[in-house]
Structures are given as C-alpha cells and as structure tokens.
Amino acid sequence: MTSSIVVNIKKKRITELIASGKRTDGRGLTDYREIQIESGVIERAEGSARVRLGKTEVLVGVKIGTGKPFADVPDKGVLTVNAELVPLASPSFEPGPPGANAVELARVVDRGIRESNAIDLEKLCVESGKLVFVVFIDVYILNHDGNLIDASALAALAALINAKMFKYTVEEGTIVKKPGYTPLPISNYPIAVTFAKIGNKLILDADLDEEQVMDARLTITMKKDGNICAVQKGGGSGYFTREEISEATKIALEKTAELRKFVVKS
C-alpha cells in the first residue's frame, strides 16, 4: 500500500499539471501512451494477443471448447471472460482467488464484447439446447502501470480477431475434428476508453500514478457504428457531474474510432 503522504504529494503535483493542460510524461489530456499489439503469441491457444500500453502489459488467450448452452438461449454459443491480476505484475497483486478488482475488470471486458455482439454466438451453436462451442477469454495482466481496462479490452478484441476455429463434423451428437481452420465469426469491434477525473479535468489512459490520485473513473465502450454498448463508473470516492458525462461521450466517439483502426488493421 502506498502511504497516503506520498499520494498526497503526488496528487498536488499531478493535479496542478493537469489543471494547466499538461501531464507528467508530456502527453496531452486525451492522448494515449504508445500502443503495441502483437497477435498469435501463444501457439497452443486458438487466439492470443499481447498488448503494451506504455508500460502496462496484458496478454489475452482465447480457448475454444464445447459445452451445453444456457437454458434461456439454447441456440447460442457461450462466452466467458476471466481476468487474473497475476502477482508478478505488481507489488499490490497477491496470489489467490480473483478479488473485486479482477472480477470488475473481467465483467467490464465481458460486457463490451457481449453487448456489442462482437462474436456471432449463433454461429457457434452445434445442436440447439444440447451442444455449443464455448469461447473462453482469459485476460492475464503481466505488468500494471495503469488503465488495465482499455489495455485488456484491446487485447481481448485483438485475440478474438486472431482466433481460429478448427473445422469439424458432427457424428452421433459428438464433434469430430477435421483438418484445417476457419476464423472465429466476429461481427463487431467494441473499443473501451477510460476517463480518469483529476481535479475538474477528464484525462484518458491514466498511468498508475494518475490512477492513484484520481477522484473517479468512467469507462465507455462503443461499437463500430458509434453506439454505446457498455458504461462503467468506478475507482474510488469521487463523482462525475452531468456535464462531464456528456463531454466524455463526445470524446469517446472520436477516440474509439481512432483506437479501432489500430486493432482492426493489425
């Protein structure tokens, strides 16, 4: 735990800089750090991607299995997202079952993918009510330097685009693999952008120092048509005003389009 005295000193410096439109690393308020995306880094996984966002580093693996569909949607494949705050990634991460932060991270990434219908789950149904494909997205945080949500959502999308499905036939209700692969059916490209409120300013892509001093954060996930598919306010004991939320949606429209080019191209 960072001592509150250090945080208070940091907070003063960072807040003063941001109030004058500057940041400690020289970025503009809505600039992202350098983004690097590497796809297909884990050969054993059906899909994978490693995203670096400044010093933040996230690895996502996609595995595809089979299982029973949920009773209320018998003709759709199943999507599950899990996030691990791996202890090697930060002195503040500890071994053990996922805590509230890991669960929230996984659920925000999940909501973006699910609500935008990024994966065409109907195409993953083998036999209605009995047998469907299950897409497991596992988010692995390797180095924590802030803005895990955006980095994880980018990596998850890149891994899905990278994912391949084995060809198969169905014989007596079981799946028999055939040689060759097809791409996973992807029908949307959700992009998450996370605002941090520091003082009375909104910034994008906060690094760890900025996250430690922020009042609150707001994640907006948008689909390729610019519609919103997920929102999450979080991060500490601050709040947003009505005007700040309108401003955030405007900036998000521009930024998500910008970031999407980055992933969909790579």
Binding site: S116, N227, I228, V231, Q232, Y239, T241, I245, T249
Partner: peptide
C-alpha cells in the same frame, strides 16, 4: 449534483444514452 454510479449495458446511441441518463 454529483453522479456516483453510472453503468450501462445494451445498445444506445449517444443521444439515447444522454436522454436515459
């Protein structure tokens, strides 16, 4: 006038989202 929780899931345009808020 402080908004302390805001979430959303589903599909809304920016204008619809603001109207819902």
């Amino acid at each position: 006038n402080a908004i302390t929780l805001l979430q959303m899931d589903g599909n809304l345009s920016v204008d619809e989202f603001n109207a819902a808020v």
